[in-house]
């Protein structure tokens, strides 16, 4: 018998093992839901799968009686737009500042402690400030995401720049590169796949801030809808929305990973199983 740390599952058992927790969770839900519905057919806390499916179809196909729009897609569009804007702005700032701080000692000495302190401010604590300054519209929600994840991306990318082998930076200088050329041809191209890594890591946090902002002040959005129907105990709406948000988050992460592998094969060549 091999040691536990040396036992590896085959292809089929890998898939089976991956499915197991999902199946177990679904089974547990069905049992709990059945038990509650048997006691009280009008129970709203754990609706049956049938109710959930009906509700999902209704959400995704029936236009709202008030506006004529399908709220589910309207909410999805609004949330994804805010998320993309927030994450996009954060990534751009992160790349610029990360490279500047990592590559140029004079800038690092001047600003790295400042960024370190800024990153400790809890973003939710400044949300009221954002609402006061930027109003209750789109801007404050996007800014909350930016405030929330930019410090992490900046510090992560600064670290990645400093981790580039010293030899490469010296080699570039012996090829006659000036500081700008080193940033442009040596540091930037090696940092873009690392930026994708940092964005993937910060997406979960970005969703957190997006839904928080939407919960507090919004007129549409996935987070807004969940918190709106909470007062009716509408679990048949909340649960599909939560699953949908999870799927969106997973797909975003998957797409970023695939993009990185396609565009930067040299970065991923050392990964196991490739």
């Amino acid at each position: 018998m091999k040691r536990l740390i040396n036992q590896r599952p085959g292809r089929v058992s890998t898939a089976a093992l991956a499915l197991l927790p999902f199946v177990a969770l679904a089974l547990f839900y069905v049992l709990a839901s059945d038990a509650r519905l048997a006691a009280n057919p009008g129970d709203k806390l754990l609706p049956s799968f049938t109710t959930l499916a009906e509700s999902f179809v209704r959400l995704t196909s029936e236009p709202s009686q008030r506006t004529g729009e399908i709220l589910f897609w309207q909410d999805t569009g609004a949330s994804l737009r805010r998320l993309a804007q927030g994450v996009g702005i954060s990534a751009a700032i992160g790349l610029l500042l990360g490279i500047a701080l990592g590559a140029i000692p004079l800038i690092r000495s001047g600003f790295a402690p400042f960024v370190a302190v800024l990153s400790l401010i809890p973003p939710m604590a400044v949300l009221p400030v954002l609402f006061i300054v930027f109003g209750l519209g789109e801007v404050s929600k996007v800014v909350l995401i930016v405030v929330g994840i930019t410090p992490f991306i900046v510090r992560d990318l600064q670290q990645r720049v400093q981790e580039l082998p010293r030899e490469l930076i010296i080699k570039a200088q012996t090829l006659g590169a000036n500081s700008w050329q080193i940033v442009l041809r040596v540091i930037l191209p090696q940092l873009v796949p690392r930026l994708i890594d940092a964005v993937r890591l910060s997406l979960g946090t970005a969703w957190l801030f997006l839904i928080s902002a939407e919960a507090i002040a919004a007129t549409e959005g996935l987070g807004y809808r969940i918190f709106l129907v909470r007062r009716y105990l509408a679990m048949d709406v909340i649960l599909p929305y939560v699953v949908w948000i999870t799927i969106l988050a997973y797909l975003t992460d998957f797409l970023l990973k695939q993009t990185s592998r396609r565009a930067f094969p040299w970065y991923h060549s050392g990964e196991p199983g490739r």
């Binding site: 030899e167 490469l168 080699k171 570039a172 191209p189 090696q190």
Partner: peptide, 9 residues
């Protein structure tokens, strides 16, 4: 150098 003499990208 012994290592890291070429640009991986």
């Amino acid at each position: 150098f012994q290592r890291y003499s070429v640009f991986p990208h």
